[in-house]
């Protein structure tokens, strides 16, 4: 038995007390539970054969008590990044930032400034939408872009309490059977930003996925005003 392996195993057992939540909910201490905490990211074709792509960014979560939840922070800029050529550097960026009950969207543009710091691209407005209450309020721009921002049901599902038992070495049988497993996110809400945009506004990708299919390489960031 290799000692290094035993030490790794013991180190893993030592994380017992740490609460971890996926997908990205509360993933790291620096952003954990703050108004800038990204909870989830979805990107999909809305219907088969559609020429649009939908991006949904969930910020914050009500899944556990004492987390920031319920109000978009005016000091937090959300960016959806899209790489077309596969170098993992953004070629198109869509920005969203709230001001006085309105969510403003900018882009998609190829930013001159890449990387970890951003400015709001005020010269490239995309549209805006009133931040919803319980009922969804949607804007459609003349370019056919649909916009939404507001509280929504958190669609993520995961038995995360059992996950913590599994990674802590406390669950010899692993995860529970479907009869006994519990979706920790049942009943949770999140602050969602949604955009449905024609692919023609994003460009044609040459990047490939692991199966060789043409794809956008996408990711979302939250950014705090300095």
């Amino acid at each position: 038995m290799k000692k290094t392996k035993i030490y790794l195993g013991l180190a893993l057992l030592a994380v017992t007390g740490i609460v971890l939540v996926a997908a990205d909910h509360i993933d790291a201490p620096g952003s954990m539970g703050t108004s800038a905490d990204i909870a989830d990211f979805y990107a999909f074709e809305p219907t088969t054969g559609s020429d649009n792509t939908v991006f949904i960014v969930d910020l914050q979560s009500s899944v556990l008590p004492d987390l920031a939840y319920g109000t978009f922070d005016e000091n937090v800029l959300t960016e959806i990044n899209i790489d077309l050529d596969g170098d993992l550097i953004e070629d198109k960026v869509i920005q969203a930032i709230p001001r006085d009950g309105i969510m403003y969207f900018f882009g998609p543009i190829n930013p001159s400034q890449k990387g970890l710091n951003s400015q709001v691209w005020v010269d490239a407005p995309l549209g805006s939408v009133e931040i919803s209450g319980t009922t969804a309020k949607v804007t459609t721009t003349t370019d056919g872009v649909k916009l939404f921002a507001g509280p929504r049901q958190d669609a993520f599902f995961f038995d995360f309490f059992q996950f913590n038992e599994v990674i802590s070495g406390n669950a010899p049988l692993g995860f529970k059977t479907p009869e006994d497993a519990v979706d920790t996110f049942d009943g949770a809400n999140t602050m969602s930003i949604a955009i449905e945009i024609p692919n023609s506004m994003l460009g044609t990708p040459t990047a490939k996925n692991a199966l060789g299919l043409d794809v956008y390489k996408t990711w979302v960031t939250s950014n705090k005003k300095q």
Binding site: L20, V21, A22, A23, D24, D27, A28, G30, S31, T34, A36, D37, I38, D40, F41, L77, I97, R99, Y104, L116, N117, S118, Q119, V120, V122, F156, T218, W219, V220, T221, S222, N223, K224, K225, Q226
Partner: peptide, 19 residues
């Protein structure tokens, strides 16, 4: 909308950083 915004959180695929 002035000012500089510095990145604090990132997400691509679900669960990767967490797990």
């Amino acid at each position: 909308f002035s000012g500089t915004y510095a990145q604090v959180d990132h997400m691509g695929r679900p669960g990767i950083n967490t797990v």
